[in-house]
């Protein structure tokens, strides 16, 4: 029962204008493809891995999706503004923003340099702030929008996390709640999704003993898949989910 069932009926996000940060590989790619399968138009950003980004673009185009790809750093406010300006010019607005780009430096605190701390907080917190700010202008004009922040704190209940990473994700969850209150009255919903450990991505880089530990502790007895995390995210940003905002969903198999 690891693959999520196909959603019923017509596409969930027909022609929705979606932007995913960090979309070149792993969960970011899975999110892009799940949005495309739901009928959306998909734009994504990436920083360095051009070959991976082109692979994601090709996969989107194979699905018949109108894809737009932007290279740049999420910590760069000008980049965020230019990406959103391009989407407004091309598509007339942005309906969905998924703040997915993140970095993870597996360092104990005594070995964490200030540069590591700053980089982690910059990418994982300032990035979502810059992209949310850029997207809010067209969303406020439209009186509608969905922002989904990918946090990853679910794991912290059973596993040690680098302190800078944990602090950044905690901040992102607090930001989710605060922004939800600020913009809810304008028809914009803001939620967070905290995936547990997955077979691919960060989970694949962990030692097998840690993965086995997770399997033992989690209710469903297995790691997740990027596809099931992405399918869940699609529902969260879809027009079917209308009375949830400021929430953080621990999609972790039951820790």
């Amino acid at each position: 029962m690891s693959a999520p069932p196909d959603p019923p009926g017509p596409p969930r996000l027909p022609l929705a204008r979606c932007l995913v940060t960090g979309g070149s590989r792993n969960l970011g790619r899975a999110l892009c493809l799940a949005l495309a399968r739901a009928g959306a138009r998909v734009a994504f950003t990436y920083q360095r891995r051009t070959a991976d980004a082109e692979e994601t673009r090709a996969a989107l185009e194979r699905l018949g999706c109108e894809a737009r790809v932007f290279q740049g750093a999420v910590t760069d406010g000008d980049h965020a503004r230019k990406v959103v300006a391009d989407l407004v010019a091309a598509w007339g607005g942005v309906d969905v923003l998924i703040n997915n780009a993140a970095i993870f430096r597996p360092l104990p605190t005594v070995l964490t340099e200030e540069e590591d701390w700053d980089a982690t907080l910059d990418v994982n917190v300032k990035g979502p702030y810059l992209f949310s700010r850029a997207c809010l202008a067209p969303m406020l004009r439209a009186g509608a929008g969905q922002i989904l922040n990918i946090a990853a704190c679910a794991v912290d209940r059973v596993s040690e996390l680098p302190v800078a990473f944990a602090a950044s994700k905690g901040a992102l969850i607090a930001m989710t709640s605060a922004l939800a209150r600020e913009v809810g009255r304008y028809g914009i919903r803001v939620n967070a999704l905290s995936p547990g450990l997955c077979e691919e991505g960060m989970g694949a880089r962990l030692h097998e003993a840690r993965r086995e530990d997770y399997r033992r502790l989690v209710s469903l007895g297995r790691l997740g898949t990027l596809q099931e995390i992405a399918a869940f995210a699609v529902w969260l940003v879809s027009p079917e989910n209308t009375f949830m905002s400021g929430a953080n969903i621990n999609l972790d198999g039951g820790l």
Binding site: P4, I229, L251
Partner: peptide, 11 residues
Amino acid sequence: LENSYLTGQVF
């Protein structure tokens, strides 16, 4: 009908 990995959560 569609969820495969969420359990024990308050939605």
